[in-house]
């Protein structure tokens, strides 16, 4: 199982001063897999995402992706290698319209990977295509501040996908949304997965995680306490204790 994993996290740790945020995490994600990552607040999920994406650097252990070590690489280099993320609180480029928001990863990541192949017309067409995929094509020329919460999340996902990643990490892309909006985002993530993008979903909304994930990993206080089939993991006594017993 480990030999052909897309993402291979080996014994990584991270501390902030005296506080141990991650403690010897081991995790593998297979190509094309849908992994759910859950844990109580402050359990280290975001720190783990930041260590995978290069926003933070892990102190011990290593992160391997697609057969290469990512350790020491900056965040943008990891994006170039095919790791993309959406942010928990959407962080659009607020001085640019939606089309230009998507143009950034195309200009900086897809170009870096394949050389500047595209003409301006091709770029526009690709941006529109992406906006259509998330249902925002009609708002292509609007600014991010004109969007609703759910539209903002969609823009965030579209921008991550624009970088043509192999792995997409969706960091609480559904927090605060209504039921129908959650379904919207779930369908979107499913479609992306069908196109061959591996997805790690970090989520608090259990119904969403359970319906989406093929496998579930649980973090508690910086340690991985469970990893397996979703229905088994939620019955795991340690997980139940972590969620209910505090």
């Amino acid at each position: 199982m480990t030999a052909n994993a897309l993402l291979h996290i080996d014994n990584i740790s991270k501390r902030f001063g005296g506080f141990v945020a991650l403690d010897g995490i081991e995790l593998q994600v297979m190509p094309g897999e849908r992994l759910g990552l859950i844990g109580p607040n402050g359990s280290g999920k975001s720190t783990l995402v930041n260590c995978i994406c290069g926003t933070l650097q892990n102190e011990t252990g290593s992160v391997r992706f697609d057969g290469h070590k990512l350790d020491g690489l900056a965040a943008h280099q990891r994006t170039h290698r095919g790791v993309a993320r959406s942010f928990q609180l959407p962080r659009p480029f607020h001085s640019m319209n939606l089309l230009d928001n998507l143009r950034v990863p195309l200009l900086y990541t897809v170009h870096a990977r394949m050389g500047p192949l595209r003409s301006t017309g091709d770029l526009d067409a690709r941006c529109l295509e992406l906006l259509e995929m998330v249902g925002l094509a009609a708002k292509a020329k609007q600014m991010p501040r004109d969007l609703t919460q759910v539209e903002m999340r969609k823009l965030e996902l579209a921008r991550a996908v624009a970088a043509e990643p192999k792995l997409l990490i969706a960091d609480e892309a559904m927090a605060g949304l209504s039921h129908s909006e959650i379904d919207d985002i779930l369908k979107l993530l499913m479609r992306l997965n069908e196109r061959g993008i591996t997805v790690i979903m970090i989520e608090h909304i259990m119904s969403a995680v359970m319906s989406f994930s093929q496998r579930l990993a649980v973090l508690v206080s910086g340690k991985k306490v469970a990893d397996g089939l979703p229905q088994d993991v939620v019955r795991d006594p340690e997980v139940v204790r972590a969620y209910l017993g505090q």
Partner: peptide, 19 residues
């Protein structure tokens, strides 16, 4: 575009592949 992403949000810029 790179300059503008830095003015707007450096973390999002890095995540989009801007060095």
């Amino acid at each position: 575009f790179g300059f503008a992403t830095i003015r707007d949000d450096e973390m999002a810029a890095e995540a989009s592949g801007v060095p």
